[in-house]
């Protein structure tokens, strides 16, 4: 495992917002996404939302010094509130909104049972322990209402949280993706080639060059 670090120093995909890489529709869509604040929730109640925030922090952890944080939990709540479905659900799972409400409540109940505190109050170690048990299908308390915890973990927690995180421009900058691309696409496609409007990766000894290049992607 490579440690997480700043591979693309100075790169901000949003710097390209006013270049030919973004069309009007894209700007409108991303503006709307960026308007979601970390505390916005319409679908889940306060307790469930707090649990979701804590789960999100374990599934897609963010650097503590990052501002603003990617509002992962709020983005999931947004999806549930707007009723956007994935197009399928596993036979063992209820509809997504119901599944989330039930699952978050059940996780909290498991936390109370094991540690006597709500999930969001637990330390990272305890939270990870519960999530690992959930992933293996090991959580079977009455609060689950018959819903298999492994299915909930693999088919709701993981896809919903991970998709939300990587749908955010901050995550795009973190992984060095070029971001939206229309009408301008790309020209240089071969090995080790990048267009001047793509993120430059920082290689040992060449950090400053990458930084300088990354400040130019929005030109």
């Amino acid at each position: 495992m490579h440690p997480r670090k700043d591979h693309f120093p100075g790169y901000d995909v949003l710097a390209k917002r006013d270049t030919p890489s973004w069309n009007a529709k894209t700007r409108a869509v991303i503006d709307e996404r960026l308007a979601i604040t970390p505390e916005t929730h319409r679908f889940l109640d306060k307790a469930a939302f707090a649990t979701l925030q804590a789960v999100a922090e374990r599934i897609v952890p963010q650097p503590s010094d990052r501002t603003p944080l990617v509002p992962v939990a709020a983005m999931v709540d947004h999806k549930l509130a707007s009723g956007e479905h994935d197009g399928y659900r596993y036979a063992g799972l209820p509809e997504q909104g119901e599944a989330w409400r039930c699952g978050l409540k059940a996780l909290d109940a498991e936390a109370q049972k094991a540690f006597g505190a709500p999930f969001s109050d637990l330390g990272a170690w305890a939270q990870d322990g519960l999530l690992k048990a959930c992933e293996k299908g090991g959580l079977t308390g009455p609060a689950w209402d018959g819903m298999p915890s492994d299915l909930f973990f693999k088919k709701r927690i993981i896809p919903d949280l991970v998709r939300a995180y990587y749908a955010h421009p901050t995550a795009w900058s973190e992984i060095g993706w070029g971001g939206p691309a229309s009408p301008r696409g790309y020209v240089r496609m071969g090995f080790d080639r990048r267009d001047p409007w793509e993120a430059a990766e920082s290689y040992p000894g060449h950090e400053d060059e990458a930084y300088a290049e990354n400040l130019r992607v929005g030109r």
Binding site: P20, S182, P183, R184, G185, Y186, V187, D195, P196, W197
Partner: peptide
């Protein structure tokens, strides 16, 4: 795509 306003791509592509 983008014509002359996308010249950085289209002049070379």
């Amino acid at each position: 795509m983008g014509g002359w306003s996308n010249w950085r791509q289209n002049l070379i592509d």
